[in-house]
Each structure stands twice: as structure tokens, then as C-alpha cells.
Design a protein around this nucleic acid. Structure first.
Lengths: 341, 341
DNA sequence: GTGAAAGCGCTAACAT
DNA sequence: ATGTTAGCGCTTTCAC
């Protein structure tokens, strides 16, 4: 850690006061007369004193840090969440310990342990899987403040997130009401459960009295642009007779769009397209992509507020609360031929 | 911090050994016989013991954490760096303290102080400005390990990054050798210096004996897709007579591309286009964008290696070393009409 | 108004 | 083979 930093003791020695007095003075205690405080402050500055927060954390039994664990940062919307969360935490005097699990549950568990060993006051986690939440449930059972960034109403864990089911329901509903009857859903990287969006898709069909054809479910092995491109390739080479595609995120939709451009398939005339997340790259695509707005600011602010509340809880943690934020649709050209780019 | 966690003392009390013995046993010291170790390990598990890393940090005077300060995460390439850096650090047993400065130098300074107070063993920073580096220089002068993620050979601070000047030189050289003589450069968010890419642009012109026209310098107030769109608007409404555009990042280039699509300007036939960074969205744009590859993995790995080396330095820090990684060009359709999408 | 003493949970000499 | 002591840098009673 470089040059041994100045300690309270150094200031005490130099001023002749005790460590205690210096500590109080530096924290602006009214028990210390203003002149003394000023004197001590001067010497502190001179010595380039910076309080050792590690020591303070040990005494106070709080670190004013929280752990943020995401799956990965390839999705711009997760990235935006990371940034917004850090900003919110910083505002409240918390430092962010950051890690990505790379969708590996073992890594997720390890990072949680690491942060716990570092005595992070709480954690915000975007878990790899909706199904494997036991380690997190156990944490909570031990009164450790955790808030998930994906919502599973039955998980027994606090969560704040967009209502993905509702978002998908609205998106697919929009396509259905535009007369589409055979709608492909591209859902990437959901090997471990997480079918909120698929459920929304199905509910929309049921409510509209449209039959569901599982041949229209396309499942690439990830959710990047390349996966969307691949998905489009399988869709169009299989001749599924689809007139619309619902991609479960904008990156996938962008991949589809690229495939269409390359193969002279017109969007939305030959095929309508909807994405999910509302990333800037979708808005500025050749054909601006209709999408479901992900309210990053709102999710981040509420999630942070929730952990902080949990941290402040007196005795046991209150019962878990799941907050689902209802998303809005953004209809652009990719699903609406009357809108012109 | 939830239920008071088990301490060494609790294990000591329960087993009858001293705290010291428990500590040694848990760390696998050969001084403790295997049976004792096993016994202690059992009780530790039973008590759900997790070492308090805050206490350890205080004693050892190292936290095994490093601070990562970025400007913002809106650029996918910075995002990728963040993720790769975290991965590298994690491999080496370091935890990442993360913060964004939002391009505000005051925030940058505050975060540096915060991380220093938390006794981060070192820092990786992508500074707001190339010009205002005094606070970081001062840190280094106090023997604090810092590595910049942008390279200023004269800053007197360690740095590992892509050679942006060289990248721009190559990109513009490519356009020049394709016969372009009036090349616009779109350079966003550089109010505070940072003209490496502009320098590369100029050097390429000089070496090719092509005159430089400052009317071709377009400076939007940021580097997002929207700013690129805006830049394209000013370019085409000013009738600059340009035949090529060099956008200093891919987001800007994507904005230009969107503008062209909307205004029936053909890329590359009417205007050639090059970006910088090689983000996936550029590769999969309607017209795949030629760009300068940003070697995220390499930069991240080397930067981490460098801080870790500095942290391990015995006495004073070695003299600062700036590592510039030479980037490769990726020529795609946007700058080459013989390539067909 | 100021200081002494104890302690946060751990590690590291130095005993025995 | 195990325990004792001191101390990391700070905060918090409690005393004078």
C-alpha cells in the first residue's frame, strides 16, 4: 500500500493531544473547542491524513459497501444498470464491489462468499438462474440483505425488476393486434429456466384465442447479435410461415435485422420485428426497432433503496418484497409499416 | 451486517483450543497436527465460519482489492474492459471496487480518495481528461500503484492501452490509399484534450501529402449514436464535399449510418465510413462497419498485470512505463465497395 | 475539555 | 504441539 499513511497517532504525537481527542476533532465533535479542532485539522492536512476506513469498518461492524453481481456486461441494458446502481450507491455513501458470474453458478456462489467475507453490508444480484437460488435464500435466512435484479415472486427473496412477463405480453399483444398469427419467439440463453418472457408470449396468445405452435420457439445458445443472426437463419430456412418475430432482447433483434438486410427480406413488410430492452443501437438501426422499454433508472434506484432499507432493518429482515415495474411499449418502424424511417 | 457471524474465538471456545491455534489450523499450517486441523475445520463448518477479511486486511496492511474508475459505461468497449479487468483481478484473488466518474473530474478525484481511504492496494483508471492528471501524478509520487487505461507517454504515470494515434493513422491511411482526399473526422467529447486520434488523422494526411482542411473536423458534444447522427446531419447539410468519414468510435459511425439510411445516401458508394473499437453492433450493421480493433483482452490483462507488479514492488515504484498496443484494421463493407454484404 | 482503557477480529512473534 | 502477548488503526465508554 505504498508509503505508510499517516495515522491518528501521528497527528496526536505532533499536536500533543491524545489519539482520542484527534479522532473526535477530526469528526467535528462539539466536545472539542473550535480552536483545537482547527489546529488538529491543519496538522492532519499537513500530514496528508486519510482515515483508514478498514479500521473504522472493523470497529463499526459495517463497511458501507455493497456487492453487485451480474451475469455479464454484454447486454447494454445490464451495463446501464451497473452504472446507475453504482451512482445511486455512491450518492448514499456506499462503495460498489463488482463482479460478473459469466452465467456460471459456481462463480456466482464464490463471489457471494467473497463479498460476505469482506463484510459487504448487502448485495444486489442478477442471478444466473431463476431455478437455482438456494444459496441466496440461505443468505437471506441468515438475515443478510440481498436484493435480486430479476423477479421471481415465489423465490422468497426481495427483488426489484422490470415485469418481463408483462413486457412480453404487451409486445406480443401488439403484434397480434396488428393481425399477426404466426409469431416466432427467439429466446436466448435460458437453459436454466427463466421463461417469464415465454409465459407472456403464451398468455397473449391465449387471451387473443390464437393457437400456440411450439415450432415457432427458436432457442439460440445466447443473446448476442450473432445469436440473433443465427436464429434468423434457422427461421427463414425452415419456412415456418411466420409473419412476425419477437426477439427477447434488442441484440437478438439487431441480428435478425442484419440477416434480413443481407437476404433482401423487408422489415416490417415481409416480417415484423420486436425487441426488448430499448437499447440505443436499436433505436438507430436501419429500421428502428420496436421494443419494450427497460426503465433502468427506476429499477436501479428502487433496488438500491431496498437494500439500503434492509441494511437499516433493526432486528430480523422484513418479509421479502418483490417489486415488478410495468414496462411501456415503444412502437417504431420495425413493427409498423405506417411509420416511415 | 445481519446475524453476528462466528469468529475464531467462537471456534476456540467450542474446541478448547486457543484462538491462535484455530487461526493456524484454518489456514492449514503444518504446525498443527492433521487430526486437530480436521476437528477445528469441522467445528468451523458447523458454526458457518467465514473469516472476517476486514480484520485480516487491517493486520496485513493489504486489502487485496483494487479500484477501477471509468468515465462511463455507455461505450461497449469500456464495458468489455470493465468485465475483463474484473475477471483478471478475480483470478488473482483481488476484488474490484468499481466507480464511474461521469466525465466529471471532481467525481474522479473523490472516488480516488474514497478508494484510497478504503486502502485499495492499487487503482486502474480511465481518466476524464488527458490534461488534468495532477491528482493522479501526486498519488504515484506517494508510491501508490496506479495504471491508466489511456496512454499519454509524457504523463509520468504507468499506462496500458491501445495506441489510438496509430489506430487512427492506419484507419485514415486506409481511406487515403483508397483515393479519398476529403475525409471528415468526427471526434466526440474531447473538450478536455485527448486528440490522439486527431493526431493520427493529421499524420496520415501529412505522410500522404494531402492537405488538411479543418472544415472537415466535426465535433459533437459526445460519442453516442445520437451524436453520430447529429454529426452526419451537419456534415451533409454543409456540403463539405467529403467522400469519406472517419468516426472516432463505432457508436458515432452507427449514427452516421442511420442518417445515411434515412436520407438515401449509400455507404460506401456515396460516402465511405470507418469507425473505431470494433463493437459487435458495428459488425452486424446494415452495412458492416470497417473499424479499428480494440484488443480488450490484451489491454485488460496487461493493465492488471502491471498494477499487480507495482503492488508487489519492494521499495519505491519503478519508473512509469507506458504500453501502447498496436491495433489492427478490420476492413468491412462500409469502406470497401468490393465487399458485398 | 481531555485522556486512559478496552475492544473490533485477526495475525505474528515469541514463549513453553 | 499449543498458548500468550502485542498490535493493526480506529471508536467508544468512562473517568478526571
Amino acid at each position: 500500500m505504498a508509503k505508510p499513511a499517516a495515522r491518528l497517532k501521528d497527528i496526536a504525537d505532533k499536536t500533543g493531544f491524545s489519539v482520542n481527542t484527534v479522532s473526535l476533532a477530526l469528526r467535528g465533535s462539539s466536545r472539542i473547542p473550535p480552536e483545537t479542532r482547527a489546529l488538529i485539522a491543519d496538522v492532519a492536512r499537513e500530514l496528508n491524513y486519510l482515515p483508514n476506513f478498514v479500521a473504522t469498518s472493523l470497529v463499526r461492524r459495517e463497511t458501507r459497501s455493497i456487492g453487485l453481481i451480474l451475469t455479464d456486461l454484454s447486454n447494454p441494458v445490464l451495463t446501464a444498470v451497473a452504472q446507475a446502481v453504482e451512482g445511486e450507491l455512491s450518492k448514499r455513501g456506499y462503495t460498489t464491489l463488482f463482479a460478473t458470474s459469466n452465467n456460471d453458478i459456481a462463480v456466482e456462489e464464490t463471489m457471494i462468499e467473497t463479498f460476505r467475507a469482506r463484510r459487504a453490508d448487502g448485495m444486489l444480484v442478477f442471478p444466473c438462474s431463476h431455478r437455482r437460488l438456494d444459496h441466496i435464500r440461505k443468505l437471506r435466512a441468515r438475515n443478510y440483505p440481498v436484493v435480486l435484479l430479476v423477479g421471481d415472486p415465489d423465490a422468497g427473496i426481495d427483488a426489484v425488476c422490470m415485469d418481463e412477463r408483462m413486457g412480453a405480453y404487451k409486445a406480443v399483444g401488439h403484434l397480434l393486434s396488428n393481425g399477426h398469427r404466426r409469431i416466432v419467439i427467439i429466446d436466448g440463453g435460458t437453459k436454466l429456466g427463466n421463461s417469464e418472457k415465454l409465459e407472456g408470449y403464451m398468455q397473449a396468445h391465449r387471451d387473443a384465442g390464437v393457437e400456440i405452435d411450439t415450432a415457432l420457439f427458436v432457442k439460440p445458445s445466447g443473446h448476442s447479435v450473432a445469436h440473433g443472426y443465427w436464429a434468423a437463419d434457422t427461421i427463414f430456412s425452415q419456412r415456418l410461415g411466420a409473419s412476425a418475430i419477437f426477439a427477447t432482447n434488442d441484440s437478438l433483434a439487431l441480428g435478425v435485422l442484419r440477416y434480413c438486410a443481407r437476404n433482401n427480406i423487408r422489415v416490417p413488410d415481409d416480417i415484423a420485428l420486436m425487441g426488448f430492452d430499448n437499447i440505443e443501437f436499436g433505436e438507430y438501426a436501419v429500421t428502428p426497432i420496436s421494443t419494450v422499454d427497460y426503465n433502468v433508472e427506476r429499477v436501479s434506484a428502487m433496488a438500491v433503496e431496498r437494500v439500503v432499507d434492509l441494511i437499516g432493518a433493526e432486528a430480523d429482515l422484513p418479509p421479502p418484497r418483490v417489486t415488478l415495474i410495468e414496462p411501456d411499449l415503444l412502437i417504431r418502424q420495425s413493427s409498423n409499416s405506417t411509420l416511415r424511417g
